[in-house]
Nucleic acid binder design. Structure first.
Lengths: 185, 185
DNA sequence: TCTAAGTGCGTACGAATGTACACACTTTTG
DNA sequence: CAAAAGTGTGTACATTCGTACGCACTTAGA
């Protein structure tokens, strides 16, 4: 029952594997994600995956959890920085239009996560927690009813943008959010 | 160069295979969709798939095309039936909240299609066409700017609903759409 | 220094997958 | 009726997959 007798050689390896997994998913989709591709992307031997993780599903679950955590933090930071509601509206518009949050890679990963969550309880729970947290960040500035509408906009707008060639009209986005926030007090 | 010398025994088989494919995707995700599962679901022999389709990717592409066509028609029908803008707002609210369009099965398939389109040019084009058509249906009742916002709502709202337990508040949805339509003239 | 215990990896293997293809069957043509 | 041509299927095969596991290596205690 003693403590660990030896420290790991590469303590960051697990996280590097998870980051590599997200790269593979972004590039090939979950349906094209395999142990071997992940190992190659991470630059670790194949056996390292089965050593650190129980199964491929386990890897994917933890990778998505890592992504959700990362996005949730950015989301939270952007919203708590806003002093008042107009600033919050602008911040949300930035989230939707900005190049940090809604980058093509993140959007692809988001789609993959939504799709995968429909078939995996663990990822579904991760997703629910994330949505709950982002809703809470939003609630600091908007009414509960407005939160629901704004949430939907944050979800849907970058999605459509990804499939239209042209970039988003930030002013239109901001105006829409303002309209919703004022109407649904 | 004569015409076909013989008629097919089962001319609907191709479509039945595609419907079965959608069932398999809805149940197992694209990552769990295989020739054998599709054949089993459709009640046809394995060889029938390679006979009618070039590859598994080909089957999935055509299945998604079939789904897009079906949804696009319902979408169009719901919107052209509306006589004026308030009715159109209500119709959109019905699309978002209704049990015909945003059923869990359809939503799951939608997620899968969005995710898969990021890695497949053919499905990406199918998706773009569909979005273009739904945008056109919307444009009969809303300004171009309002169309973009309403489109985002249609996309994002059922998505979030799927992960919250409670059903959508139809009146809230209608009010939001109305607010957007009036503000973005 | 010696030993026990945990760390990490190369390799192998059964299972499952996508696909090809030889072979029957059915209908039309001559 | 004979044969040609297209329809449809059962099966086999190469490949790839996830996963297990024996074996080397490294470090902490005696």
């Amino acid at each position: 029952m003693g403590g660990s007798r030896r420290v790991a050689n590469d303590p960051l390896r697990k996280q590097r594997i998870l980051d590599a997994t997200l790269n593979v998913i972004a590039q090939h989709g979950v349906h094209g994600t395999t142990h071997r591709r992940i190992a190659s992307e991470a630059g670790v031997p194949l056996g390292s995956l089965t050593y650190h993780f129980d199964s491929l599903g386990d890897i994917i679950e933890q990778a998505f959890a890592r992504m959700a955590e990362s996005m949730s933090q950015r989301y939270h930071a952007a919203l708590t920085a806003a002093p008042d509601q107009p600033a919050a509206c602008a911040a949300v518009a930035d989230l939707i239009c900005g190049e940090e949050y809604a980058t093509p890679r993140e959007l692809t990963l988001l789609h993959e996560m939504y799709a995968y969550a429909n078939h995996n309880r663990t990822v579904a729970e991760t997703l629910r927690q994330w949505l709950r947290r982002s809703r809470a960040s939003l609630a600091r500035h908007f009414s509960e009813r407005a939160c629901r509408a704004v949430d939907a906009l944050i979800e849907g707008w970058p999605m459509h943008q990804a499939w239209e060639g042209e970039p988003l009209d930030r002013e239109l986005v901001r105006e829409t959010i303002t309209a919703v926030a004022e109407r649904l007090r």
